[in-house]
Design a protein around this nucleic acid. Sequence first.
RNA 1: GCCGUCAUAGCUCAGUGGUAGAGCACUUCCAUGGUAAGGAAGGGGUCCCGAGUUCAAAUCUCGGUGACGGCUCCA
Length: 613
Amino acid sequence: MSKTDELNAMRHSLAHILATSVQKLYPGAKFGVGPVVENGFYYDLDLGKKKLSEEDFTTLEKEMHKVIAVNDKFEKFELPINDAIDWAKKTHQVYKQELLNDLKRAGTTVAGDLDAAELGLEAIKGSKVSKVSFYKNGEFTDLCRGPHLESTGKVGAFKLMRVSGAYWRGNHKNAQMQRIYGIAFTTDKELRQHLNMLDEAKKRDHRKLGQELDLFVFSEMVGSGLPMFTPRGTVIRDELAKFSNELRQKVGFQNVWIPHITKSDLYEASGHWAKFGDELFLVKSQETTDELVMKPMNCPHHTRIYASKQRSYRDLPIRYLETTTVYRDEKSGELGGLSRVRSITQDDSHVFCREDQIEGEINNLLAAADELYETIGMKLKVRLSYRDESDAYLGDKKLWESAQKQLKNAVLKNKLNYFEQEGEAAFYGPKIDFMATDAIGREHQVATIQLDFVQPSRFELEYTNEAGENQCPVMIHCALLGSIERFLSVYIEHTAGKFPVWLAPEQIRLITINQEYITTSFADKVLSNAKELGLRAVVDNSNESVGKKIRDAEIMKVPYSVVFGEKEIKSGEIVPRIRSDIEVSDTHQPTKIAEFLQTVANESKSRVSKTSL
RNA sequence: GCCGUCAUAGCUCAGUGGUAGAGCACUUCCAUGGUAAGGAAGGGGUCCCGAGUUCAAAUCUCGGUGACGGCUCCA
């Protein structure tokens, strides 16, 4: 058995042991499904009136350890489907009964249409279903696809993590069950490592850091999912957007500006009304009878700018760029921190080009994305999402094929780490999705580049080709950061709030050793020199001990702190205190103040993450 | 939207049917300081909002708002 197979069997076994223990502690428990998931397993339960809480975990874990200690063999046996249904009826396992009935109804070949994982019956996927498998350990028997370990004693380290609500078969019209989720690893060490990672993730939680580092706030008066950014947070937002824009401006993108509301007619034309309908914020005009909405996306507006003039093939590509906010009325339960908000700022851009220009444009955008994430210090993985053979896609098939080839060429040319996936394309065109890996190994979907064969024709966009005929351009949607809010949530956690100099809201803190005029006025002078160089510096001349002021600067994760006292004033030289994560040169020694400021200004401008100090 | 948990000072949190608390932060004073917390005094609360139960509600009940963990959806 391979290591992953064994881990898989172990997690399955633990789900089974969990069920065994629940059965013992709460007779009459009804079981749903108990699959293996990333890092662990869960089991969906219905205990009738009894609601489990995390306080019950100690008892439950104790019971599980008892089951493990007994080391009963997992005995696998198979039953014909009808007998299995009888078993479910007899044991009042209504959920299992439903699954088995579905299985039976699905006919002799199973699982293709039914979600096999959900059914817990992957073992028989694609095969003739005449029998289903059971596992028995001691007194407890459960329908399960397996595989299981040999016996209960063979499992590794586990921990129950949380309990939450989950609908039976994921459908909110069905009964709500309780899902007990646990993690499991082969060794204690791995379990501890994983718990440490979770702990680290908790420490880095962008909601916590956002508060501590004074980056953004929410107000009950403003509403749910509507973050506001403080001066510090706004620096980071603006610097990120500026960088993202520069990367595209240098390949011909031009800034445009659009209003944030529009008549709903725009989305009726684009076809978004039907799709976005209930996510749109409606705006009521008191002066006109217009039906207005907050924009949930920017592309339709941008098509109007394109369409405002006659376009020649010579004009293409036309490239619009805009960092702007869209508004989506997300379901309240789905909001959270900056990851899901209702005011979403996108570093959005749209290219209108000829079919033969796709590759060149994609190439530019990929290079931009690559440079952005290189600078940010996150590893990128690229997914090429193609169409499959179904007819769920709009637009000319030949155009699709040519475009998909051009996408791939551009990816190859940029030497990006990529994989291809059929059937993942949007209905309106193929796309490239970017996954970034953060400092603690989590993957996040960030940017996308999407081709669009549908909107240009919906909006009747045209250009005149060499032959004097009207042609429809192709549209390319691209946001390098994606949503700035979501990107920030990822990035804050990636850096744990230790932003590189170019993004740090406060780059230098000037700490006075006392409050005498000679000291504070010197610090003020250095401050104004720093400002002249475009640096973000702050003087701390508060009536506190030097130790305290250093500590305050450390807590705020300021990259450079400089203490000013008699020594510095006399010599004009300083030894800056450098945040511990920043790489320094070997020759780190006293520097002239002007030199220090110039060095930091250069670092900021060139967006490097180490220092030559 | 649904299920569950929660909401007390700027922050982190204790408390509980009968006078509202701590630490940090803030203000003032003393100390004039040398690289992660110097000392003292003081100010600060509609205990999320609304209704109900009660002699009495921050505490119990219901409704709303907001946060968190999930389900579903998504950038």
